[in-house]
Write a protein that binds this DNA or RNA. Structure first.
Lengths: 134, 134
DNA sequence: GTACCTGCAAAGCTTTTGCAACTGG
DNA sequence: CCAGTTGCAAAAGCTTTGCAGGTAC
């Protein structure tokens, strides 16, 4: 994790990364951003891109979309259901309520996408971790 | 991607992986499953575990939880909003409607988790990909 | 018998990190 | 000046894959 207490500077690299990202609506991955930024700063490194994306997220200038990543968890229950994830210990519990078919119905009225399914995850602190907090 | 047309066999490895995963409600990652299964099949390899988790998902015996993985996408808009993901081309668009605060409220009445936020993603086929389908 | 599966090891891909040099304020 | 930042390269972490031998059916 990164230290939140740092004083952040406005470097060329940081500025250009932010500008390029704000320009597009394609939600690029880090290496795509690297490619975009290199057109203006040919000597920038991938490491710098990663570090700045982290800092810019902390500063709430951008956000990271973490859905559907490559680190997977597996669930012996094949039925569609929602999950609760603890931000402290990382445990995942099943959510105690049903899928909302309404959400997909709503979405269909608003877009031209063919909606196939949806994923909903709640983020919070599990009772066990709560009880251990100072 | 895996070939869906295969005839799948019931091997010891496949059977034990499924049994062990059904036993727990902890939503383990692949390497945790590997550790669990090795107690019964000490010579099993991690590769076999990965391959079988893939097959078992195809067979709808289990499911993969892909939320909050490590391959991230970045969004120049720091405001909380939902996304639409195309399963064909992988593009991500912003969803054209507002966050449902009701969802968190509902969840609070059902669990002892301290709910901090939620993530909702719709999966579908974007108009462009739809138009190219056979 | 043979298509499918396994163990092993190597490779792949994304992300993180140590380090010495550099720079914004 | 000096804490924060950078480029580079190596390392780390998770997942996939090539291969030769094994196995379910």
């Amino acid at each position: 994790m990164h230290n939140n207490k740092q004083n952040h500077r406005t470097t060329q690299q940081r500025k250009v990364i932010l500008e390029e990202l704000k320009k597009v609506k394609s939600h690029p991955a880090a290496d795509e951003i690297y490619r975009m930024v290199r057109k203006r700063l040919p000597r920038i490194s991938l490491g710098t891109v990663y570090r700045n994306l982290e800092v810019l997220s902390e500063l709430k200038e951008i956000q990271q979309i973490e859905l559907a990543g490559s680190l997977k968890r597996f669930d012996g229950n094949p039925e569609n259901h929602y999950h609760l994830r603890c931000i402290i210990c990382g445990r995942i519990d099943d959510a105690p309520f049903e899928l909302e078919n309404n959400l997909e119905k709503q979405m269909r009225t608003f877009t031209d996408y063919t909606i196939i399914s949806h994923k909903l995850e709640f983020i919070g602190i599990c009772p066990e971790c709560s009880s251990k907090l100072p």
